[in-house]
Design a protein around this nucleic acid. Structure first.
Lengths: 155, 155
DNA sequence: CTAAAAAGTTAGTTATGGCTAACATTCTTC
DNA sequence: GAAGAATGTTAGCCATAACTAACTTTTTAG
């Protein structure tokens, strides 16, 4: 903990966890329905609409999205790549949880949403390498019976 | 993300990440020097002294520590066990990062500090089982050469 | 035993990021 | 094309959790 000195946003290009969440949500919504409307983003994140307006304006200030009042949100060049990086981290973590730890997809999904904002590049890349190797070689990933049993622990 | 509806503290017995950090710091400081003094806690967390006073009062309200102005902090029964649980999670995550992912101890330490507040019981227990099994059987944990190489990626 | 240093506290400020209520704009449908 | 629904925005508020400056209490040296 700590080491976040002031603005709460420092890690990735100065984006806070919340801002990364918005980037990711915009990406997901846009992927799903072609455009990113404020209401859909709000639903996707489970926040109220005014929260979206505020967040979008911040992202626009940072040059990550194009904001036009009452229009829909689009990414800038910088924005797409940032969002992509976040989504990538999410995917790596989620896969790792599912394929290596043998965790339920839903649980992996939720945990990845949180962990993606705070695990650094070293750990993320290890997770990626680990997952890849395991897939290819069906190697370390063999989850032994004892752990399989634990799987029943629903929650 | 999301699913934290209001108070930002919901997960573990209603403790926020910050409060868990304080519990852990109190434990560490007490372990190291016998008693938990405010200044040491502040140093250990890298926060200013008034932040500690505020946090301690909150923990006292929740019945986790005993607070007496100008006195040093002690745990209640509830407090010790809570702090212990947090420390346990920390340890499990850190060990996993070090022993399974093959990550540097310092990086593992920092990442564990953050992850301990948000990874749920399922994932934590998988990490523990995985680490234990690996240690005993020297099994899945064999990190292949390719990953070893990545180790050099300092930061 | 007293004066200075160290430790702890209070009061007040700041930043992030959520919320509701009320207003504005755009879309849709007759 | 106008009325109502849907969508988006503004303004103002709340909670968490950090900070600094100034003050109080306790500890420690001489």
């Amino acid at each position: 903990m700590v080491e976040i000195k002031r603005t709460a946003a420092r890690k990735n290009n100065g984006l806070s966890a919340s801002q990364e969440d918005y980037l990711e949500a915009i990406l997901n919504v846009a992927d799903a329905s072609g455009i990113a409307r404020s209401t859909d983003i709000a639903v996707s994140l489970g926040v109220a609409k005014p929260s979206v307006t505020g967040a979008i304006k911040l992202l626009a200030q940072r040059g990550l999205v194009n904001y036009k009042p009452y229009g829909c949100v689009t990414f800038t060049q910088k924005g797409v790549s940032q969002a992509g990086r976040v989504a990538q981290r999410h995917e790596i973590i989620k896969s790792f949880f599912i394929n290596i730890l043998g965790v339920d997809a839903a649980i992996a999904q939720k945990a990845a949403c949180k962990a993606e904002h705070l695990l650094g590049p070293v750990i993320i890349s290890r997770m990626r390498d680990f997952t890849n190797l395991t897939k290819k070689k069906a190697g370390p990933g063999r989850i032994p019976a004892r752990i399989e049993k634990v799987k029943g622990t629903k929650r």
